[in-house]
Every structure is written in C-alpha cells, then in structure tokens.
Design a protein around this nucleic acid. Structure first.
Length: 824
RNA sequence: GCCGCUGUGGCGGAAUUGGCAGACGCAAGGGACUUAAAAUCCCUCGACGGGCAACUGUCGUACCGGUUCAAUUCCGGUCAGCGGCACCA
C-alpha cells in the first residue's frame, strides 16, 4: 500500500483486473436469486455528461450492493444508436452516420464509461444500429403487421420542418419538436402506425399495479392515455337525413343543446354546406384554420371562432332544430370531430354563444341559488337538479347521466362509448439513419411484408448525405428498386425508417441473450432475468420511452415470447444535474465535463460526490468544492488505514468480547445504517454521511491513548467493515484497501457485512427531560431503567425543579428510552 | 385553470413511527505544524440577548391558524418556486 492515495494508479489497476478477470460476466444460474439492474442506455452523442455519470453511479451502487448480497446480478450497457444527430453530422462533416456513431461508441465506452469503474457485463453490449439488432425491429414489425397491430393510413400528422420528418404525438411538447424545439406543423401523409390504442385499457389499468413506480410518472401516463367515458349521439341533419354523430361526457346536458360545432376537417362538411349561401365563407374559414400550425391552433389564448354552415340538425332527445357551426377549437382527432354545444353548462360554449348571439338554455339548476340564462356571467358547471329536460326534470344530474345514457341506447339514438386521448403511435420517419420498414410496394399485390427469410432489410451504405431533397433512401435506386416477394414483378421498397423509440422499446429483453440469432431474444434467458428489478433514468421519458416499452412488452407477451405483463418492476427517476441554479447546458455555459473530473479527481471521487450531494430522485446541485470534499474524504480514509496498517494487519477479528467499546458499537451501527439507507429508497447521501461519521470516530479513537494490543482488533474490524461498506460507492478504492488488508480476490464478490444486534445495544442511554414541552435537562441512565425510575429521576433533577417553579406536576409523559415531559 | 412535487442555517442537505431541529459535507473564522505556503490535524460556526467565563435565556423549519403533553412531521387555509397536462367536448 502506497503512503498516498494515487487514484490514477489504483483505478487503472482495478479496471484492468475487472476486464481481464471478467469479474462482472454473468450467466443464468437457477441456484441464485437474480437481480436485473438497468440504467437507460445512452445515445452515443460523442461524450458523456454529468447526467450520465449520476445515472450510472446510482445503478452501479445498486448492482454492486445486490451482488455482495448474494444476487446473480445482470447489469448491462448498450447504445441507443440510431437517430438524427448522426445524420446531421454526416451532412455537416461528410462522415457516414455509421462511422460517426461507431467511433463515438468506442470513445464513450473505452475512454469514458470504462474509466468510471461501472460493473457492467460488457459481453452483453447491445448496439441498436447494427444489423443483428435492427433486424429484430423488422421482425417485430412484420409480426405486428400480421396481427393488424402495424398498419398504414392517410392522416394528419405532426411534421417537424427542421428535422424533416414526421413526429409521434408523444414527441410534440407544447406544439414544439421534442428534439429541436421547432414549431410543429400539420401534414396529411400516408404513414405507418403501431396500434398502441389496442392496449390503452391495459396500459391504463396496469398503472395501478406498478407499485414500484413514482406516482408522478404514473399520473403523467394516466393523463396521457386520457380515458373519458361518455356517449355518442346521432343528430339527423335536416334535408339530407345524414347522421352527424357527436361525443359527449355530459349527456345530462343534452336538453340544453342550442347549437353544434364540427371540426374544419370534418368529412361531412361539404354535404352540410352544399347549396347554402354560406358555402364560400365556410370553405375560406376552414382553409385558414387548417393552414395554422398545431402550436398556435391549440394555444389557449387562441380566439374561439366559428361560422354557421347554413345547415340544421335535429336533437333526438327533444326533436329541436339546432344550427350546425364549424369551430376552430373542435379537434378532428378527438371523439367524432363534432360536438354538441351547451352554453349554459360549458364555459367555452358559453363564450362562443355570447360572441355569436346564440341562445342559452339552463337545464341544470343550482338548488340553492337558481341559474338564470339571461343574467348568468359564466357557465354553470357544477352538479344540480335537472330542468327543461322533459321526463328527467327534478332528478339530480348525476343520476340522469346514467338514465339518459340508458335511454339513448334503448331508443337506438346512440351508444355508450369510451374515448381516449392516446393516439396510435406514428412510427414512419423520412430519414436515413434508422431501421428500414420491411415493406415492399408491388403494383399488383400492394403492400407486401418482406418475408422473414429475407431479413434484415439492410441500410445501404453507398448513399450521399446532401441535406437537400428527400431522404437518401429515396434517392438510392439500388435500395428503392426491388421485386415483389409474392409475384416477382417490379416493386419498390418502403423508404421510410422507424422511429428510434422502437429500438429502445425492447432492448432490455435483448440484454438477456444479446448474441442470440434465432429470435429477438432467448425465451428461456428472458424468463430467468425479466422483469427488470430496478430501472433508473430521467423523468423526461415518462410518457415516451416508458409508455412505448410497456406497450411493446405486452405485444411481445401476446406473441407468446415472454411471460410477463410489464417490463420494469421498480423505476427510479433521478433528478437533473444543475449548476448555478440551471440545468447544465452548453448555451448556459455551466457544463462540467466528466472527463475533467475523472482526470483530476478520479472515478471514485466523481461517484462519491454525485451520490452524496443529494438523494437520487432530487435535482443535484453541482459544487466544485463539494467534489473537493469527497476527494478529501477518500484521502482521509486512506491516510488512517496506511498509518495504522502495522497495528491492524494480522489482528484477529473483534468479537462479542468488545461489546461496549465505542468504535465497535459505531462499526455495527454504521453497518446497520448504511444497509438500511440503501434498502430504503436508495438514500446514498445519508449512507455516505454515516461512513464519514464512522471515519471521524476512528480518528477520535486513535488520536490519544490508543493501545494497538488492546484496541487493534476493534480497529481492524472497523476498517474491514468500512472497506466493504464503501465498495459499492468507491469500488477501485475499496479493492485497493481490500487487497492491502489481505483480502482474497475481488471485493465485488465479497459478502456484505452483517451487524451484530447485541453490539448496538447501548448500556447507557440519554433521556431528554422536557418541562411543558421544552427541553430543560438530560439524564444519563442505564439502559432498561423503568419508566417509574426515570420519572422519579426527572422530577428530582435540579433544572427541572427550577422550571417547575414549585408547582406540582399535572401530568408526566415517559417515552421509553427517549424522553420525559413534565407538564405543570 | 387542473394535477403533482418542493419550501429547513451563508450553501448542498439530515431528522426512519409526532419525541433533543440543523447529522454529514461545503463555505467562513480561529488555532497547531511549517522559515513560508500548500497539504494535513484540531476547535468554533441558526438569529438575537445576558455573562469575564464554563454557561445561559428567548425566538427559529415559507406564512396564518388548528389538533397534541409535544408538530419540520398530522389537519385546514394562504403564499412562492418547479414540473406535467390543458380548447379533450
């Protein structure tokens, strides 16, 4: 053992050892309990950032802790390596996306992640942009196509003009592209979709079963899925007799309908305006609204506008004739694209009616106050009593909701129905660097899936990246032109690629058997390792990746490949790394480069600091001085072990005979505390604080009157325990101490220490004495002193007497082993 | 607007079942060592007041109120910050 802690030497040595010994390689072993610990895999952008450091440090502590507790731990790493930045780099620097990506991966793996001392089984590395991975995306696509879960349709889709591609709904945040922040527009295109809506009900109901997930993620998913229960009602258009179907969750207000509104895109629009004098005005209005981008169209501040179509429809409940309007606020994507408008009981309808002078009819009365149509200032949206509603008058509106739904169904005027906010997942991307969609278009046979035997459909490498015109795949004649697998005639390939979120939707299954080539994964291996016991990543994927992965898992289950319903048992969403009050970002200029910390302080310090500064789920405030503190702590541990190494080397372990010794007790209290803090919500910050306290105690213990003969074994056992306890946090450091102390092999497979319950029992305890709830004195009594004796001692205490001021105690509360409160 | 989270020293944070508020670390101040500095080690460190001093009193966990012998913790209300959703019919 060197006199000074030289992290470069130590970290290099142990990284080499782990690599050579394949310390973290795992295989299925039925004799041991398994534990699958997974961190969200990175996009190989070229460099890791502090968010990665934090994410992987958290996962590594958990993995190492579980490993030392006897679990067979699967802890893999890979690369989410398809995506736009590679293609943009190709356009900008003239380097092929594949080369750019693979070079980034090599750098990040060998020069960055491996320097962090993470206990990955690198033999299981998964790289999604390689054929042996993406061919299975294509395989899944075909299986889903066969089952009607992948389909093509013409629809209005989100279009990011800057990325030059379509986006899924989940990838539009507040009307802006999730990746580049450009304003998203609407385009009518024929695109491939995955039918995630087929699983809407299950995705929603299983939220209740995901007890290991943070509530806020589940709330976001529930919100996103957005189930609403209501009825569809057919209104008959006067003149044509066509059915105009509306969806409502407020069927109790059906008698209050005074007009209807449809979306500008509504298919019945032309038939409604045919021959009407308003036709031109309506068309102009619709074209204007449809030209607007999604962001401004769905902006709350957007003025609610509409025009009358000239047509009327009949309310089937009261046979009343109501005008049909077109409204800019009615969405074709939700419900039926047509709504009934009840100004008296819907604020938006109320404002619309006031603006255009449409009638207001109250059908739910406030029992106390009374609601008057002529004088009301805003819609009455609370519950009340039915009025102006024929035979439902006088009932409460909540009861009528069911009764009216029954009536609508019995009279065949419509039906109960459920509407979802969730839309099918649009996966077509008009870009090169992704998985080719395995479809061939034949003039005779139409869309034909590529036969399994012809997979993978490989990305052509000889393409040019100009950044202009269409995607390189469209421009590539050799890729585009092919023959039909069914009839052999001339055909063309689909030139769109898949959304990269497809790649990350099942990679956790691939890790179970990453080299398997007969199927996406080996069913037996997945049965052993799945589900993921602990998943760790950022909150930003709450409704993107985490929803898609759940969907994919259910599809894979229904394909008969996997036996579980959900992929991730427990989810930890770590907070952001911030500095100077803001998230680290290049534009803010507050980025700390992990390489700098790794080079100047070492991986163990970087890990220790990022775990100590805050609990994992909270934001972490980066502090350069805090890093110094973590660094100092390691030096401090090293120094005391080095100084005392002569005294502690070959001591027998301390045993029960040392009960009552200060450091012996502290050692066992620390084992207990660190273990519990890890088990209880991964509170690594307090676990590390406990280790620091123990080290402080060791300094105190050895500072004066230390007797190596008498106290050596206690110190030895303290240092042994400390080394084991610190090893998940600072693994290289711990290995070095472990070896210096004569430990065999790697500490990574040593057993986690157990505390001696008798060792932590105190012989004397301090009792807090309060008078009227305020601390006035303290008593030191032998452990096990009875409540009565404590009470007597408290009342006899001079300070207590002083504050009692001669008055008799009204009540005395004794909390065993803790506190006495004298009330006067 | 709706939903969720958070609010504790100069700073990051701790307090596990309602029982000593501020563990641990950072910063700051003082001391030891040193020719000097760095490093290291030791001490002090919520605010205000009293005492030469050891010590000691009052207040204090965003704000107001409640329950309780006792509240950072439970309940009601208010404010602020962060995040998500939001013409969803």
């Amino acid at each position: 053992m060197d006199e000074r802690y030289d992290f470069r030497k130590v970290e290099e040595r142990w990284q080499r050892y782990w690599e050579e010994q394949k310390t973290f390689k795992v295989t299925e072993d039925a004799s041991k309990p398994k534990y699958y610990c997974l961190e969200m895999f990175p996009y190989p952008s070229g460099r890791i950032h502090m968010g990665h450091v934090r994410n992987y440090a958290i996962g590594d502590v958990i993995s190492r802790y579980k490993r030392m507790n006897g679990f067979n731990v699967l802890h893999p790493m890979g690369w989410d390596s398809f995506g736009l930045p590679a293609e943009n780099a190709a356009i900008k620097h003239g380097i092929h996306p594949s080369k750019w990506t693979l070079e980034n991966i090599a750098f990040m793996r060998d020069k960055q992640l491996k320097r962090m001392g993470l206990s990955y089984d690198w033999d299981r590395e998964v790289t999604t942009c390689l054929e042996d991975y993406y061919r299975w995306n294509q395989w899944f696509f075909i299986k889903m196509y066969e089952r009607g879960l992948a389909y093509k349709k013409l629809s209005y889709v989100n279009w990011c003009p800057s990325c030059g591609t379509v986006l899924a709904n989940e990838q539009v945040e507040g009307g802006l592209c999730w990746r580049c922040g450009s304003v998203v527009t609407h385009k009518e295109l024929e695109q491939w979709f995955f039918k995630i809506t087929a699983y809407a009900e299950e995705l929603l109901s299983y939220c209740d079963k995901l007890t290991g997930w943070p509530e806020r993620v589940l709330t976001m998913q529930r919100n996103w899925i957005g189930k609403s229960i209501g009825v569809e009602v057919d209104f008959i258009v006067e003149g044509t007799g066509e059915k105009l179907t509306i969806f409502t969750t407020r069927q109790d207000t059906l008698y209050g309908v005074t007009f209807m509104s449809i979306a500008p895109e509504h298919p019945m629009l032309e038939s409604l305006i045919k021959g009407k004098k308003q036709a031109d005005e309506v068309r102009a209005f619709c074209q204007r609204v449809m030209r607007e981008d999604k962001a401004s169209r769905t902006d709350e501040k957007q003025e609610k506008e509409g025009v009358f179509t000239g047509s009327y429809a009949i309310n089937p409940l009261n046979n009343e004739k109501v005008p049909v309007w077109v409204g800019n606020f009615v969405l074709m994507e939700y419900g039926t694209g047509a709504i009934m408008s009840v100004p008296a009981h819907d604020q938006r309808d109320f404002e619309f009616a006031k603006k255009y002078g449409l009638p207001i009819r109250v059908v739910i009365q406030n029992p106390g106050k009374g609601v008057v149509a002529e004088t009301m200032q805003h819609a009455y949206v609370e519950d009340g009593v039915m009025a102006n509603s024929g035979r439902f008058d006088g009932l409460s509106n909540t009861v009528s909701k069911e009764k009216i739904a029954d009536y609508v169904e019995q009279s065949k005027l419509g039906k109960r129905t459920v509407n979802w906010r969730l839309r099918d997942w649009g996966i077509s991307r008009q870009r090169y660097w992704g998985t080719p969609i395995p479809i061939i278009y034949c003039e005779k046979c139409g869309a034909v899936p590529v036969p399994e035997s012809q997979l993978p459909v490989k990305l052509p490498m000889d393409v040019e990246f100009t950044g202009k015109g269409l995607s390189p795949l469209v421009e590539s004649k050799s890729f585009r032109e092919t023959t039909c697998p069914q009839c052999g005639g001339t055909a063309r390939r689909e030139t769109d690629t898949m959304d990269t979120f497809v790649d990350s939707s099942w990679y956790f299954l691939r890790y179970c058997s990453s080299k398997y080539d007969k199927a996406p994964f080996d069913k037996k291996a997945a049965a052993y390792w799945m589900g993921v016991d602990q998943y760790i990543g950022g909150i930003e994927h709450a409704v993107l990746h985490l929803l898609y992965a759940r969907f994919f898992t259910k599809v894979i289950r229904d394909l008969g490949l996997f036996d579980g319903d959900e992929p991730f048992e427990n989810l930890l969403t770590q907070g952001m790394v911030i500095k100077d009050g803001a998230k680290m970002s290049k534009s803010k200029g507050n980025v700390v480069d992990p390489d700098f910390i790794l080079s100047n302080y070492g991986a163990d310090t970087a890990r220790l600091f990022s775990l100590f500064a805050a609990p994992p789920e909270r934001d972490l405030d980066w502090s350069d001085q805090g890093v110094d503190g973590a660094y100092r702590f390691l030096h401090r541990v090293w120094a005391i072990v080095y100084k005392l190494s002569g005294d502690i080397k070959d001591r027998n372990p301390a045993g029960p005979q040392f009960r009552g010794d200060k450091l012996y007790r502290k050692t066992h209290l620390t084992i207990k505390k660190v273990t519990e803090d890890i088990e209880r919500e991964f509170h690594f910050n307090t676990a590390i604080a406990a280790l620091m306290e123990m080290v402080n105690e060791m300094y105190d213990y050895t500072s004066s009157g230390f007797s190596p003969n008498r106290q050596g074994p206690v110190l030895r056992s303290a240092i042994d325990a400390l080394t084991l306890l610190i090893s998940p946090f600072a693994p290289h450091f711990a290995e070095e101490l472990w070896a210096a102390l004569g430990g065999k092999g790697t500490i990574a497979h040593a057993a986690w220490p157990q505390y001696d319950p008798d060792a932590i029992v105190a012989t004397e305890i301090t009792i807090v004495v309060q008078v009227n709830g305020k601390v006035r004195s303290k008593l030191t009594v032998p452990a096990g002193t009875s409540g009565k004796d404590i009470e007597a001692a408290a009342l006899a205490d001079s300070k207590v007497k002083e504050f009692m001021n001669g008055k008799p105690p009204k009540k005395v509360i004794v909390v065993q082993g803790k506190l006495v409160n004298v009330v006067v």
